[in-house]
Design a binder for these strands. Structure first.
Length: 187
DNA sequence: TATACGATCACCT
DNA sequence: GGTGATCGTATAC
């Protein structure tokens, strides 16, 4: 079952935690790619010194102020795309950065895209997973549903999940609380 | 209009 | 464990 707006239109921290272990699906040119979400980070609004929304609404970050359930893709370091889903109600800024996934369906497709043979390294970073999933700013602002070809399925791949947390990655001025969440599935 | 820098990765040692 | 690549934004002038 595909996650709907109701899932995303909640507190950003809750959405970030509950996305863990679910299946990120990309449908492109009739090909279905998917992976298990293993790492997320929560970003908030004015009170968050690391958030794009910290100075208010701009041309780049306006989607963070929109209602939950939309795709927010931006360019980082001049060369990599990062995938986020918007969260919370309209005019309440929030987004969840998808940092890492484990390839699940169509692993060979991803290996080719990434020019990478090691299963573990295919999408263990926000820039990498965008390459593996063919995600770029063309889909910025679309809704995360079957029409846009990028969405999350509520599939319990891992029944029992221990959620670990830490400080967010690559942040100089972070908040006191931990807003990076991740799981370490047993194989 | 100009400039500094970032929610990163790949490659080197 | 360290560093260079690379460019859209935000911020300052």
């Amino acid at each position: 079952m595909i996650l709907t707006k109701e899932f995303y239109c909640r507190d950003t921290e809750i959405v970030a935690k509950e996305l863990l272990g679910k299946l990120l699906v990309r449908e492109i040119n009739g090909v279905r790619i998917s992976g298990i979400i293993t790492e997320t980070e929560a970003y908030f609004g004015l009170e968050d010194p690391a958030s794009h929304a910290r100075f208010g609404k701009t041309d780049r970050n306006f989607l963070m102020f929109d209602e939950g359930g939309k795709v927010y893709v931006y360019l980082i370091y001049g060369m990599y795309n990062c995938l986020n889903f918007t969260t919370d109600k309209k005019d309440v800024p929030g987004a969840v950065l998808i940092r890492s996934i484990l390839p699940y369906e169509n692993i060979e497709y991803m290996k080719e895209k990434r020019n990478c043979q090691k299963y573990k390294d295919i999408a263990n970073g926000p820039g990498k997973l965008c390459i593996a999933f063919s995600i770029n700013r063309d889909i910025n602002g679309l809704k995360a549903n079957i029409d846009s070809g990028l969405y999350v399925e509520d599939k319990e791949i891992y029944k029992k999940i221990e959620i670990k947390k830490s400080k967010r990655i690559g942040i100089k001025k972070d908040l006191e609380k931990d807003y990076r969440f991740y799981i370490e599935p047993n194989f």
